[in-house]
Design a protein around this nucleic acid. Structure first.
Lengths: 151, 151
DNA sequence: GCACGAACTGCAAACTATTTGCAGGGCGGG
DNA sequence: CCCGCCCTGCAAATAGTTTGCAGTTCGTGC
């Protein structure tokens, strides 16, 4: 972790934009909220609430506030929640540059996460939906394996 | 739920077979263990530990024992653990008739689960693995939507 | 600017799912 | 028949997440 994430400014919406979106929902862009966004913007892969909270070290911000902020941001669609099957929620900032819908390749040893930008399930999903009479179908897909360093 | 599951005997390994497998791991097919298997065999879709425990009503069996039994059975590969993203583990009996690896289509309103027997990701998975230098790659895929009754 | 109400915050406690320590009980092999 | 390992119930410990409450802050309307 920690390599090559200095210049992701162009990928995310800027603060003013986020504030606007918050305001539309009668939400406020408060200090702690900014810190959470800051952390998410800085670290462009799924993070646990605890990790986010740790990254805020220095600034006083309660873990409960992190959870509440993440919920608000998720409701507004600015943040996405992921689930890697270990019972811990992970959150990622929805950015303009990347497709909102994407999947991950996770190393089962070191937990490194590779972002996969393409999704190839649209047609299959459509087929499954009609075959079973379901509507508004979505899916969750994550890959797990050993990364090059952990083999 | 509760329709058309009377004749699934042919799909599952029988008790003696299971006992054999347990014995190979120096494990015992005890009363509570049988009850858990019974419940899993009876209800052929992912169940939470709590549901399984509730289905055992009458027979005294601690919830902790259900968890322990499920863990043992999962370690032996007789049971599979699934994760629908709500932070609750669900377990399903691995049967002979069905491919061990399969996915689900879950109604987000009534939680009905449709079993999908085919998996179409082998080639895509291989491509992703080699493209990223990962090995021993697996995946988790679940579909979510509204079932016919809930639309 | 200033006042006001809705949102937000920290803190502590509550909840939920899951795991674990411990003492007792039972099955299978020798 | 005895011994040891496995298994069990019970209760307590964990871990992640949510919530109640009282005080604080934000952003708007004046």
């Amino acid at each position: 972790m920690g390599t090559g994430h200095q210049h992701c400014q162009h990928r995310g919406a800027n603060l003013a934009d986020l504030a606007d979106r918050l305001r539309q929902g009668a939400r406020k862009l408060t200090g702690p909220r900014q810190l959470v966004l800051e952390s998410l913007r800085h670290n462009r892969h799924p993070q646990t609430p605890k990790e986010i909270h740790a990254a805020l070290a220095g600034q006083p911000c309660d873990l409960a506030t992190v959870y509440r902020s993440l919920k608000v941001l998720a409701d507004l669609g600015m943040v996405q929640r992921f689930d890697f099957g270990d019972g811990i929620a992970r959150f990622e900032l929805v950015s303009e540059g990347r497709d909102e819908h994407h999947h991950h390749l996770i190393c089962t040893r070191c937990a490194r996460v590779v972002e996969l930008d393409e999704c190839f399930l649209d047609e299959i999903q459509r087929r499954i939906a009609t075959a079973n009479g379901f509507r508004a179908v979505t899916h969750k897909l994550e890959f797990f394996g050993l990364c090059p360093d952990c083999q």
